[in-house]
Design a protein around this nucleic acid. Structure first.
Length: 423
RNA sequence: GGAGAGAUGGCAGAGCGGUCUAAUGCGGCGGUCUUGAAAACCGUUGACCCAAAAGGUCCGGGGGUUCGAAUCCCUCUCUCUCCGCCA
């Protein structure tokens, strides 16, 4: 959620930046400012009336103590009159506040200066590539055939148990998931991230905090009986750890990592792009989240990018890093880098991580603040990224490292997996 | 699931209808003393709305009673104790 004061300070600049994100309803900005003016006016009226009620009530107490009942009764009538005028003001005030909030949450975050212009994924800017694309044998096959050959993921049985898009990992496939999770968490904690294992279902307030509600309701699985949502990413419960808190400046930066399964309904997705592990309803992911001083967030963003990049390097996978253009960025982000790995048999780039700076967009909703040296509270900046999402990493590992007798695994996984290869 | 108790400032904890602008203790910050520190003593110490002042709001959330609510009533959420069930 954008800060009102930012809109008020320079409405035109806000509109220009929203346009960069392909956001067309810029008249919302003016509507919001008008509503805020209205709100202030009503607030003042309400405060003044309330002040009169308060002082009259105090007098009544004093008059009663002195036994001056008649005078007290006169005051009571005055208060009753004030309350009659207060009621409609208070109603209008809360109505205005509600409307203001409803409109405010419709505005996406402002893209940072560094965001390239553009409308579609084709306009994203490739920052750099790393790793080597392998030369595959002529009989190389995509991962959905490899998983059958080695019997490590069973989609049919997953569909029997739950439904399509719920993979059942088996034997070495299950072991590989565990090895990757363990390795990623070790890698993150070695870099100073504190490990968490959060709840996998969240309440409404939490889903609202990171921006899944009110808009993206349909993307989450919903438990009607208890009004809980299955998390689409660990970002949701982990960032909410500090909701409504004011941190001490010396406790910054807050660095957190968590492994969780992620649940996504992704209604309407089908076709070749979703074959095999490319897109599923339940998948494993290790996430990193940071809460940092506003002056440092863009340095931290770069630091997180190289953190993820180094992790991909150790997996010996070919990758590229994209800076997303305005039109392809998420609603909440101010600047996003996507990581893609090259899946050699599909001859496709697959997104495995997205690292973003949200600036104050999330922390404003969640009221995550810190107290500066001047004693004033300010909003922190929040950032997060995948480190990493598993299914597409697995797809890529399988496809790129296939040879006649099996799948070679990168050295860094040997101990975690307990073998050099899958056969 | 059943019965009971509770939710107050960073923490502990008093207040149970009108100087609550919330006692007191701890912690934090500043000072006196000290070479420095500790101890002792003195002072200070939350958040939010408003450009600011004035003013207002906030004692788990929401609603109500009352001229007036931290205090009384209803409701929801959460915590604790006991019982039941359970990996």
């Amino acid at each position: 959620m954008l800060q009102l004061q930012v809109l008020r300070q320079n409405a035109q600049a806000v509109k220009d930046r929203l346009a960069k994100k392909n956001f067309r309803e810029t008249n919302l900005v003016d509507e919001i400012i008008a509503l805020d003016d209205e709100r202030k006016k009503l607030q003042l009226e309400s405060d003044n009336t309330q002040a009169k009620i308060n002082s009259a009530s105090k007098e009544i107490g004093q008059l009663m103590a002195k036994g001056q009942k008649e005078e007290a009764n006169k005051r009571k009538q005055e208060v009753a009159a004030y309350k009659n005028t207060l009621q409609p003001i208070a109603d209008k005030l809360s109505e205005t506040e509600k409307l203001l909030n409803e409109k405010l949450v419709l505005l996406p975050n402002l893209p940072s200066e560094k965001v390239p212009a553009g409308k579609t994924p084709a306009d994203n800017v490739v920052m750099r590539e790393g790793g080597n694309k392998p030369t595959l044998p002529s009989d190389a096959v995509p991962h959905w055939e490899l998983i059958k050959k080695y019997d490590i993921v069973d989609f049919e049985t997953g569909a029997k148990i739950t439904g399509s898009g719920f993979p059942l990992y088996k034997g070495k496939g299950a072991r590989l998931q565990r090895a990757l999770i363990q390795y990623f968490l070790d890698y993150n904690t070695a870099a100073g991230y504190t490990e968490y294992l959060p709840p996998l279902m969240v309440n409404e307030a939490t889903a609202y905090g990171t921006g899944q509600l009110p808009d993206k309701e349909g993307q989450m699985y919903y438990m009607q009986a208890d009004n809980f949502y299955m998390i689409p990413t660990a970002e949701v419960p982990v960032t909410n750890i500090y909701r409504d808190e004011i941190l001490k400046e010396e406790s910054l930066p807050v660095k957190m990592t968590a492994y969780t399964p992620c649940f996504r309904r992704e209604a309407g997705s089908f076709g070749a792009d979703v074959r095999g592990l490319n897109r599923v309803h339940q998948f494993d992911k290790v996430e990193i989240v940071q809460l940092v001083h506003p002056d440092k967030s863009y340095d931290v963003l770069e630091e997180m990018v190289s953190h993820v990049e180094n992790l991909l390097n150790t997996l010996e996978l070919p990758y590229r890093i994209l800076k997303l253009c305005g039109g392809d960025m998420s609603f909440a982000s101010a600047l996003t880098y996507d990581f893609e790995v090259y899946s050699a048999a599909q001859q496709k780039w697959l997104e495995v991580s997205s690292v973003s700076n949200f600036e104050t967009f999330q922390t404003n909703r969640m009221k995550i603040r810190f107290k500066g040296a001047d004693g004033k509270s300010r909003l922190l900046h929040s950032l997060n990224g995948s480190s990493l999402a598993l299914p597409r990493i697995v797809a890529c590992l399988l496809e790129n490292n296939q040879f006649a007798a099996g799948i070679k695994l990168p050295a860094v996984l040997h101990n975690y997996f307990g073998a050099l290869s899958i056969s």
